[in-house]
Design a protein around this nucleic acid. Structure first.
Length: 612
RNA sequence: GGCCCCGUAGCUCAGCUGGAUAGAGCAACUGACUUCUAAUCAGUAGGUCGCAGGUUCGAAUCCUGCCGGGGUCACCA
């Protein structure tokens, strides 16, 4: 029995039958009653009063009186245009039964639609960092939330496994690697490859610096620099061009890319080998983060399909070709620019691969919707991608959604690999877990457990701190990541919510399974009632989070529930309750709360320990 | 400059499909553990909801303009 639904239907019925007013359910404004007023739910009558031709308080009064004909409404009161309704406790007791004994309470009825969620989507030239962590956690939560909202959901990522970046790592390894492997260096493969990427950049910068001393560079500076521009500023923006037209290392890297595209056996073999190192490393990181995928796509396997889509669009005159051979699309009608789809030399650009991947996914899985979890710096890119899909009349065009999120920054600014301020995902997990361990050992609750059990608990706590910290904020907000705060375990944090669950487990462990006492006649206290109302809202919250693509809605819900439980816990005894009835009710309530805490945190990818 | 996102307590954030006196956490201060786990609870203090107009019975919430911060407008990805 969904209390909110019962409420909506009852009110709709009364309005229709008693007041001859036909009102749609989504027109009704029903809120959880604010704590300073009596009642459980509040109907906002202002919008109805006009249609009933009565002042709001009168209308509220009349609706309230009419509702009382149903024994399940036991009381009402009117404050201005607000009708506060009290619902019979048997209804709440029924709800509690459902919450306790329905394994997947909160799960919404299943829909036929299939949704594919893309997240993580790393490049293969360096390990995962803080930015990926936010992305992965958002993506994973959306997967869980959409599933709970009744959709068929598939997890995917597109691995950007080709291009100049990986060639830089390959070249550096070839030149300076001396045959180093993850085994010989005793290093995760993604870190090793990342090391060579950094090495390339370092060597390239050295080369660039010494080139800046040459006459040639001076001449270019004099000709190409803007008036009054400093050498530093000029060479800052010239770097890319230097890479493409003057640099020896740049030429070698591009040479390698060309060979890759020509299927040169040596280069392809090296590419396979180094990418595999990276995948093995990613796999370990994903495993620690607790995520996995249904289908992985590789750019190297879809970019050709993208090119064929571009060719088709060109045939249909949806795109056009410039004299130099480059292919463009005119999106001015969609209030956007002209965008390039293929370079003059025939090679593909970034968006080509996305066009191909979307097509491939549609063919593979027939997904009705695709959700792309990608940072907001790519907003325009996705506007363009979706517009082109519309233009091409792709059947999946209408179902594409960009879950855009703000980038993660550090207190002193952006992460920059060349300044060594990138926060590595593996290091980050190590840190929060060791912080959790330190606190746990200090508290002493887990000291008597085996090392394995301790480790498992400490990992759950540390990861909860990290994950909750990252997912509690609305996606579109950009986020300043303070490492100090991410290991906080007090207040609105993952461990705080886990702690409520652990307290319940401790009670349940001690409660002997005696004969059941009927608690249907028990009259819940204010604190107990607050918990019941919150439990009844859980399915509603899942629906909201799925619709808004916003896991923070679930994060805030779980916190509210945990907070109410902690309050309750301090005010009431469970095992030594004043009556058997009260004890039985509270045990049930606690169990229900534990179920929903665990379930809602699971939607965020957070596991609950039994002790902490 | 055009377009997009953000602006709420000292800090980090809820509240935003219009509804009651704008709420939490952190930091500061006070109190509560012989009682089911104090990673907790209770309390004090802290606000021109960026600014100015508009719509409305009612605006933090919707509209317009401005200010501040970020992003983006590559034959980069």
């Amino acid at each position: 029995m969904k209390i909110r639904h019962y409420l909506e239907e009852s009110i709709q019925k009364v309005l229709s039958e008693v007041f001859s007013l036909e009102v749609g359910i989504d027109e009704l404004q029903i809120n959880v009653t604010r704590p300073e007023f009596a009642g459980h739910y509040t109907l906002v009558v202002f919008p109805l009063a006009g249609r009933m031709r009565m002042p709001p308080p009168t209308a509220a009064e009349k609706i309230g009186a009419a509702l009382l004909a149903d024994y399940r409404f036991t009381a009402y009161n009117v404050v201005k245009g607000f009708l506060n309704l009290t619902i019979d406790s048997t209804l709440w007791m029924e709800l509690l039964e459902e919450v306790r004994y329905t394994k997947d309470y909160g799960q919404l009825s299943s829909r036929k639609e299939t949704v594919m969620v893309e997240f993580s989507s790393p490049n293969t030239n360096k390990p995962l960092h803080l930015g990926h962590v936010r992305n992965i956690l958002l993506g994973w939560s959306m997967y869980e939330i959409l599933r709970a909202a009744g959709y068929q959901v598939l997890r995917t990522q597109i691995i950007n496994d080709r291009g100049i970046a990986i060639c830089k790592s390959m070249l550096a390894w070839e030149k300076w690697g001396n045959g180093k492997t993850p085994e010989s260096a005793n290093m995760k493969g993604d870190h090793l490859v990342g090391e060579f990427y950094v090495l390339f950049e370092t060597e390239f910068r050295k080369e660039y610096m010494s080139w800046q001393e040459t006459r040639e560079s001076q001449r270019i500076f004099e000709i190409d620099s803007d008036k009054g521009e400093s050498a530093e500023a000029f060479f800052g923006r010239y770097k890319n061009q230097y890479f493409n037209s003057h640099s020896t290392l740049g030429a070698e890297a591009r040479q390698m890319l060309r060979k890759w595209e020509e299927d040169d056996p040596y280069v392809v073999e090296l590419w396979r080998r180094m990418n595999q190192w990276v995948y093995d490393g990613f796999e370990k990181t994903y495993e620690r983060l607790g995520v996995s995928f249904d289908h992985i796509y590789y750019e190297s396997e879809t970019y050709l399909l993208g090119k064929s889509i571009v060719a088709k669009g060109l045939d249909q005159n949806l795109f056009y070709k410039k004299d130099d051979g480059s292919v463009w699309v005119d999106l001015e009608e969609q209030k956007m620019d002209h965008k390039i789809l293929q370079r003059s030399d025939g090679t593909s650009v970034y968006i080509t691969q996305d066009l191909g991947t979307a097509e491939q996914r549609y063919e593979d899985h027939d997904a009705d919707r695709m959700v792309y979890v990608v940072a907001d710096e790519q907003n325009y890119h996705f506007d363009v991608l979706f517009a082109i899909s519309e233009l091409l009349k792709r059947p999946y065009a209408g179902g594409m959604h960009h879950l855009s999120y703000g980038m993660v920054e550090l207190p002193h600014g952006k992460m920059k690999s060349r300044e060594g301020t990138v926060v590595d995902a593996d290091d980050l997990m190590d840190e929060v877990i060791s912080e959790a361990r330190a606190i746990a050992l200090e508290k002493g609750e887990v000291n008597s457990l085996s090392k394995t059990e301790q480790q498992s608990i400490v990992e759950k706590i540390g990861m909860a701190a990290l994950k909750y910290h990252m997912v509690r904020v609305q996606p579109q907000r950009r986020m300043v990541f303070d490492p100090e705060e991410s290991v906080d375990m007090q207040g609105q944090t993952g461990p705080y919510i886990q702690n409520a669950y652990v307290r319940i487990q401790s009670i349940l462990r001690r409660s002997a399974s005696e004969d059941r006492v009927d608690y249907y006649k028990y009259s819940p206290s204010k604190h107990e009632m607050d918990l019941l109302v919150q439990l009844s809202e859980y399915p509603e919250e899942i629906g909201k989070a799925a619709e808004a693509y916003d896991p923070s809605i679930i994060a805030n819900f779980a916190y509210r529930l945990a907070k109410l439980y902690h309050k309750f816990y301090n005010e009431h005894r469970v095992l030594s309750a004043e009556s058997d009835e009260a004890k039985e009710f509270r045990l049930g309530l606690s169990q229900g709360v534990a179920n929903v805490l665990s379930s809602s945190m699971n939607l965020l990818g957070i596991q609950m320990p039994d002790k902490m």
